[in-house]
């Protein structure tokens, strides 16, 4: 029984961070139709920035975030403005290929600077544990979960009740009508992409404690993010957070209850089935 709770708790904690990763991608897809296959490499980039800041100034990832958020946001804005925006009107697939190229550049840029050995970024919370009955929780996971949900709620409130948030939703629902409202659609797209990449800086810091990092991990993060976004119905906010939990829990359950190989297959199997039978995602929408 305790094994079940342990797996469940771990799944929820990791899953909430996955949800946060995916919110950024969902927002970008909703506003500009771009599916960013370099998403995971941007997470890598943020993680390695934390590593560099630790090596240079012994900064804890939780502190480094104050630096990585603005830097990642700025990188996001520049990438959209100079690489993705010129692709407006191109076939969707060309954009996919461009982001695949970007993924190679980021991944190997990191490899060239940091080398291929797995690395760790120490953090004060790394070895702290919280013990609740039979369940042992890592403090880093609890913090990750709390921050991820807080950020998700913050984003939700921002989308609902600020003019910037409403302009994002307007562009998503009808870009032409949004332009007629005096919304600068191009600017909203740049800012949303920057926001989506900025969020990754936070997610990276949350994932870092206790997780070894290596430059080649990007594609795996991209795939996990894609799984979550698809499960959530691409642009459905609540659905995406839910999708993160489903993937997190199924991953944790899979490794506990089925053999390692099969356990790793579970999320993909779920993904393929959902894609085929519920392409609109897990949640039901009033249509």
């Amino acid at each position: 029984m305790s094994e079940l709770w342990q797996a469940l708790a771990q799944g929820v904690f990791i899953g909430s961070t996955y949800g946060l990763l995916a919110l950024g991608m969902g927002l970008v897809y909703g506003v500009s139709g771009v599916v960013n296959f370099a998403h995971g490499d941007f997470i890598s980039l943020a993680m390695f920035m934390c590593l560099a800041l630790f090596s240079a100034f012994s900064l804890d990832p939780y502190v480094s975030v104050l630096i990585t958020i603005p830097v990642m946001t700025a990188i996001g804005a520049l990438v959209y403005r100079f690489l993705l925006r010129p692709m407006v009107g191109y076939k969707f697939l060309m954009v996919v290929q461009l982001t695949l190229g970007l993924s190679l550049v980021l991944q190997n840029g990191i490899l060239m600077i940091f080398g291929g050995q797995p690395a760790r970024t120490p953090s004060i919370v790394e070895s702290k544990l919280i013990i609740l009955g039979d369940v042992v929780l890592r403090l880093a996971h609890v913090i990750a979960c709390a921050v991820a949900f807080a950020m998700a709620i913050g984003l939700y409130v921002m989308l609902r009740s600020t003019d910037f948030g409403r302009s994002i939703r307007a562009v998503h629902q009808n870009a032409h009508a949004a332009a007629l409202m005096g919304i600068d659609v191009g600017r909203v797209q740049v800012m949303t992409f920057a926001l989506g990449i900025g969020i990754l800086a936070v997610a990276a810091a949350l994932l870092l404690p206790g997780t070894p990092i290596q430059p080649t991990q990007g594609l795996q993060y991209t795939v996990i993010t894609l799984l979550v976004v698809v499960l959530g119905g691409m642009t459905n906010f609540v659905g995406i957070m839910l999708g993160g939990l489903v993937i997190g829990i199924s991953e944790a359950m899979g490794t506990v209850y089925v053999s390692d190989t099969l356990g790793r297959l579970v999320p993909y199997a779920i993904f393929v089935l959902i894609m085929l039978f519920r392409p609109q995602g897990l949640t039901w929408r009033a249509s």
Binding site: L83, Q97, L98, L100, G101, L102, S103, L104, V105, L106, Q107, N108, G109, L111, M112, G115, G116, P215
Partner: peptide, 13 residues
């Protein structure tokens, strides 16, 4: 390491 992939990426973009 990785230079050749890095250059592939740049060329593609």
């Amino acid at each position: 390491p990785g230079l050749h992939y890095f250059i592939y990426g740049i060329v593609v973009i």
